[in-house]
């Protein structure tokens, strides 16, 4: 039923449905736009700012994951300016937490780590923050290591939108923001967690992982997500 629109991405003619986002259409045409907080099957929040693109006629950069395509739109995804901003944003993430790739359970499979490679971050010019963050190992099967959390809120969204438990949320604000379970109580004591492991698998970094996994051993499986979303929409 929806209307087909034509637009240009990086001067290439493309088409999409009018209810699709710039990101959807770009991916259908194999045009890469970096994303971090976005995950197919979850709502989009536009928080990580990595998918910012330039749209001709708009005075601000827009997030490709939230803005819908429109007829005649001219989108640019790889301008020098965008590349510079993306490098800085990735640097900010590394500087903010305690990301020690070499000893991480997802070393080699981490989205933050590969994003650094992808946008060309080879060192962090910003000073490191070295925050003192907590680690919760009380759950019988999973661990949250907040040192590796980038506050993408995928865990919060999957727990709320798909599992329906809403065990996770954000506490505090600004640079002090952190993910919490329930009233910031131990995960292992949670009366609301179903132990479904969805949060663990959608987490882009090694912040959430299965107990007993050593360095490089944690593989995340997300195939379930689009499937679950589809099945639930049917109901």
């Amino acid at each position: 039923m929806s209307v087909v629109v034509t637009l240009k991405i990086n001067d290439i003619d493309v088409s999409g449905q009018e209810d699709e986002t710039i990101l959807d259409v770009a991916r259908e045409h194999d045009i890469y736009i970096p994303t971090m907080c976005h995950l197919d099957g979850l709502s989009s929040v536009g928080a990580c700012r990595l998918c910012l693109v330039e749209v001709k006629g708009m005075n601000r950069l827009v997030t490709a994951c939230t803005v819908k395509v429109a007829e005649g739109m001219e989108v640019y995804t790889e301008t020098e300016r965008l590349k510079k901003y993306r490098r800085m944003l990735v640097e900010m993430l590394f500087s903010e937490g305690n990301h020690i790739c070499s000893v991480c359970v997802v070393n080699g499979r981490c989205e933050l780590q590969s994003m650094a490679g992808r946008v060309g971050v080879q060192h962090i010019t910003l000073p490191y923050y070295n925050p003192l963050r907590t680690l919760d190992t009380t759950h019988e099967r999973f661990v949250i290591d907040r040192n590796r959390c980038i506050l993408c809120t995928r865990c919060v969204r999957v727990c709320d939108e798909i599992e329906g438990a809403h065990t996770w949320d954000l506490g505090g604000r600004g640079i002090e923001s952190h993910v919490v379970t329930d009233l910031n109580t131990f995960w292992g004591d949670s009366p609301t967690c179903t132990g479904c492991s969805k949060c663990v698998h959608v987490c882009p970094t090694g912040a959430l992982f299965e107990k007993g996994r050593s360095v490089t051993e944690m593989t995340k499986h997300r195939e379930f997500l689009p499937y679950l979303t589809m099945m639930r929409e049917k109901k």
């Binding site: 590394f94 070499s102 003192l132």
Partner: peptide
């Protein structure tokens, strides 16, 4: 040349920083 993660990022030695 900063050779390896310790020189480039601080890596494992820097894990003491928060403490």
């Amino acid at each position: 040349v900063s050779m390896g993660d310790c020189a480039v990022t601080g890596n494992v030695p820097s894990m003491r920083n928060p403490l």
